[in-house]
Each structure stands twice: as structure tokens, then as C-alpha cells.
Simulated scan of single mutants.
Amino acid sequence: MTILVVIAKECLPGKVKTRLHPPLSLAQAAELAAASLDDTLRAGSKLPATRRILAFDGIVPPRAAAGYEILPQVAGGLDERLAAIFDHCDEPTVLIGMDTPQVTTALLEPVFTDWTDDVDAWFGLADDGGFWALALAEPDGDLIRGIPMSREDTGARQLDRLRTAGLHVVFLPTLTDVDTIDDAHTVAGIAPGGGFARALAAMLAPSEKGTTR
């Protein structure tokens, strides 16, 4: 029995994926972020979770969140918001973000089917030094609270916190977070059939059409 939580913010221009501007406009960056979130939510909807929660910072959740409980995020830094989510849950919980649209049901399935009694946590590092997934057999916000976020050593510090607490950690594959346009191209190449890749291709098509070789 495992809870799935996706943490996300409403995809509004100027509020999400601003590092994609330029070359994308702020409106396009927001549209691409929405496609990333939709792909993530759809992958999660196929997992055998006991509950599906969208921890949401915003007003209007996306249509792809149908079937997800909406949990408003608390105020504070990202560590405080993540900690509050785990404090809210009372059974094994896996938390993922909205920045890895290449995530698949198969990639996350072991957390739901192979979680044995000797495993205390699952951890998915991101190649920018952060992490994209954290699952705890016994959710406890104090395992996250106080970890400096959005740094090159965030993942290492979080892993050290888990191990210092005596947890047996199993790793999920390392993924690329979409922060820059180069990241977007990389992720679209990994998952060319997803909505994220299609949205990116549509945005780039007009400029490509005007290019002569």
C-alpha cells in the first residue's frame, strides 16, 4: 500500500520554467511546463497507488489531475513544503516532481511492487545534483526539513540525511530535470512520444521553417 504524491505549481507565464526564456517566450515556457506536468500525472495514474495526491501551488489544477486529491502546499521554502507533504501521509509514500516528464509507469512500478520490509526509502537523483523522487516507508518530514534545496549538493545532502537516520536506501535511475532548453531537448529525445516532446516540437517548428540551409 503506497501513496503517490506529485508536487507542482500552476503553470502560469512568468511563474514556471523561466529559464527556458529565451529562446521560448514565457507563455511557451508555461505551456511546456504544463505538458511536463500532464505527462507526469498520466504516468502516475497507471500505478497501483492507494491514494494519488497532487500537492498543488495554485488555483486551477490541470485536467490530467482527475482522480488525484488536491493538497494545497504550505507556505515556506521547498524543504518545508516537502516536509509538510510527508507529515500529511500515514503510509508508505513516494513523492515526485513535475520536471521529469520522461518518467514512466514502469520506472516507478518497483516502488509499488518490490518494496520489501528491509527497504526504508527509495531515492531518485537528478543529474543536476538534486533529486526527482523520494519514497519513505515511514513518512517523516524531519527527514527533509532543513535540507538546502535547488543546489548542486541537494541530492547528496538529502541522501546523507537518510543514511544518517539509519535508513536502507534503494536507488531509482538518475533522470534529467528540465531547467534549460538543452535539458528540454534531451528529455524530448528520451521520451519522443510524450506530450512534452510534441509540445516542444510544435514550438520550435515555426523558427525551423524559416531557416534556410
Rank of each mutant, 00 (worst) to 15 (best):
G195Y: 03
T174Q: 11
I181F: 15
R161V: 10
L167V: 13
L162P: 10
G195C: 04
G194I: 03
T164N: 08
P192W: 02
R157L: 15
T186Y: 00
D182H: 07
V170S: 11
T176N: 08
I190Q: 04
R161A: 14
G155A: 08
L200C: 10
R161L: 07
V187C: 00
L172D: 00
G195D: 02
V169G: 02
R163D: 07
L200K: 07
R198H: 15
A197S: 15
A156E: 13
V178T: 13
T164L: 05
T176Q: 13
L159P: 08
D179Q: 10
L167D: 09
G189A: 10
V169L: 05
A188G: 13
A191T: 07
L172N: 04
G193H: 07
A201G: 10
V170D: 07
G189Y: 00
F171K: 12
L175K: 11
A156S: 10
A197G: 04
A202G: 06
G193W: 05
D179A: 08
H168R: 14
P173V: 01
A188V: 12
T164R: 09
L162R: 06
G155Y: 00
L167A: 09
A191F: 11
L175C: 08
R163S: 06
L172T: 05
F171D: 14
V169M: 07
T186Q: 07
D182A: 14
F196H: 03
A188N: 12
I190C: 04
L167E: 09
D177S: 14
A165C: 11
A201C: 06
A156D: 06
P192E: 00
D182Q: 10
V187A: 05
T180P: 08
A156Q: 11
T176P: 08
A201P: 06
A188F: 11
Q158D: 00
D160A: 14
I190Y: 00
L200Q: 03
A165P: 12
A156K: 13
D160Q: 12
L175G: 06
P192M: 01
G195L: 08
D160W: 06
T174D: 07
H185A: 10
D160V: 06
A202S: 12
V170R: 15
R157T: 14
